[in-house]
Design a protein around this nucleic acid. Sequence first.
DNA 1: GTCGTTGCAAACCATTTGCATTAAT
DNA 2: ATTAATGCAAATGGTTTGCAACGAC
Lengths: 149, 149
Amino acid sequence: MIPKRGPVAETLRARGLRLTEPRRLILDVVRATDAHPSASTVYRQLRKRLPRVSLATVYRNLRRLAAEGFLLERAGMDGLRFDGNIERHDHFTCLTCRRVFDVPPAQALGPRRRVAIRTGFEVLDHRIEFYGVCAGCRRRRRDRRAAAV
Amino acid sequence: MIPKRGPVAETLRARGLRLTEPRRLILDVVRATDAHPSASTVYRQLRKRLPRVSLATVYRNLRRLAAEGFLLERAGMDGLRFDGNIERHDHFTCLTCRRVFDVPPAQALGPRRRVAIRTGFEVLDHRIEFYGVCAGCRRRRRDRRAAAV
DNA sequence: GTCGTTGCAAACCATTTGCATTAAT
DNA sequence: ATTAATGCAAATGGTTTGCAACGAC
């Protein structure tokens, strides 16, 4: 739970921004999950705590919070997503259930340097997206197979 | 230029699909560039050759061609993009000009196996997204600095 | 001739914006 | 008191869909 006074409030204030109730709760909702929610998912969650909030406010705050570095904005195949985890990390997308999981960052400094040398580009950052079948879907697949026998 | 008869036409026919003029030219347009065009960019290009074509046809074909494996569908921060290069490869996004460049695939089998072991997920594929400043933007930046002196 | 595909227009849906009002500082 | 932020409603813009006509096979 983000307090009304604290590092978040101060950082915002220093930039002429205010920690309003909707803003505080929106950051709260996104930080509380690792499911990379969409704006409308956040909205649905938020309304439980703040029934009069508008979807426009959710959008405005998600973008603003991302711009200020409190959240990460991600473009998924299914639209805009928000990530409360701002640490460096990679992602794993389950091709079966489509869920996106956080995974600890890979040490891919090798490839990074290689790209720089090959292309003359200045490589500042990188993310790896892994694709496959998550543990739950593997189990389900296995069970289904067993049942078919 | 994709011929009316050839591997593409045959693969499509085998799946009950037809190689129509719009479809042929759409695949052509996307394959002719490495700029990861959006639907409307493809549309603009296509109309030069087929003035009566509709945007709906472009969308329908891009999705269908991607579903059939002739193109890759990519979600960029600026919407849906299509990639005519279906070989395994990674991407480099210039943080200055926003362009996305293809880069040869990195040998990241190490990280891949590591993720599998750590998470119990079955990792089938992965893509690396690199971010930084491309050669053109670096040069421009350098020139601007030189001019400022 | 069959049936997948097209063009057109309307529908859809996520996201954004204008504006009068509210609330954080 | 000042002015950023909100709720609401309307607008926007990219993407999809229904349907009659068309065209690949």
